[in-house]
């Protein structure tokens, strides 16, 4: 019932969301947030990844791993229609978010991105104050009186104690790790029920990385997290589920196409992978 309302909100023909009462996404509904079916993504003539089918379980962390160029980022971007912003990208197949096909013609991609948060590899805060960064998303929806919301988002991103006294100072004066947590706070401020992260810690030192990992685990209470990572230990430390992608090389045409090898519980992937390619990769014999 609640899912149906959440999905209906994605439609472009609906009046803009009521600013005053942004309802929280249903937090503990069981089942899957995403159902991806036979998705292929092409950049122009080049098929970057082919026939991916997977489901993302609610309120858990799913890691996408695999060698460079296998299409992890590409698949991640199909989940909130960020691929629409790449000029020559085209997506085939279906992606259902809370049961709703987000590539249906009447769906407004901007509304999809409002509901699904994204954090990027390189911290990318706006050249504005810490406060204005966090308030950015809610302000797009016309929300006002954001002090409480900003504090809540910063607390959840484990950054509040470090910035509470300097909310008005420029975000770019923060350290790299703090900037990344600020970007997470900025994404949380729009109250998404999913956060997509593309190698969120790869530009950070081990201590900052550790903080981000703790933070990801704590986000499970209210969010589903999908994280792309290059770091095997990180995947095994933080994720509940792991999807392993590989690259299929067509020697005749020299095409390198990504594909999903398997998706399973993380402990299963790391100890008893069903596909030899997965085992080779996670034990470091490949990629």
């Amino acid at each position: 019932m609640q899912l149906a309302t959440a999905a209906a909100r994605l439609r472009r023909d609906r009046a803009p969301r009521q600013a005053a009462s942004p309802s929280r996404p249903a937090p503990t509904t069981t089942g899957h947030v995403f159902e991806v079916e036979d998705v292929s993504v092409r950049y122009g003539d080049f098929t970057a990844v082919r026939d991916v089918s997977l489901t993302i379980p609610r309120n858990e962390i799913t890691a996408l791993i695999g060698p460079s160029g296998c299409g992890k980022s590409t698949i991640l971007r199909t989940l909130n229609r960020m691929n629409d912003l790449v000029d020559d990208a085209s997506v085939q197949g279906t992606v259902r978010y809370n049961g709703e096909d987000i590539y249906a013609p009447d769906v407004d991609p901007v509304e999809v991105r409002r509901r699904i948060g994204m954090v990027f590899q390189k911290p990318n805060p706006f050249p504005k104050s810490i406060y204005d960064n966090v308030a950015f998303g809610p302000r797009l929806n016309g929300e006002r009186d954001l002090d409480g919301l900003v504090e809540e988002a910063l607390v959840r991103a484990a950054l509040w104690d470090e910035v509470r006294t300097k909310l008005r100072s420029p975000a770019l004066e923060l350290s790299g790790g703090q900037q990344q947590r600020l970007c997470i706070a900025r994404a949380l401020a729009t109250r998404p029920d999913v956060i997509l992260m593309d190698e969120p810690a790869s530009a950070l030192d081990p201590i900052a990385t550790h903080k981000i990992e703790d933070l990801m685990r704590s986000l499970r209470e209210t969010c589903t997290v999908v994280v792309v990572t290059h770091n095997m230990q990180q995947a095994s430390r933080v994720s509940d589920w792991t999807a392993f992608f590989s690259v299929d090389v067509d020697d005749e045409q020299g095409m390198r196409t990504g594909e999903l090898v398997e998706l399973d519980r993380t402990d299963a992937i790391f100890t008893e992978a069903s596909d030899p390619r997965t085992e080779a990769y996670v034990t470091g014999r490949m990629g």
Partner: peptide, 19 residues
């Protein structure tokens, strides 16, 4: 990066331009 970040937060193109 800034344009991507803005789009990722659900800003429309004109909102990204203006804000």
């Amino acid at each position: 990066d800034l344009r991507t970040a803005s789009a990722g937060l659900g800003a429309r193109r004109w909102q990204t331009t203006v804000k």
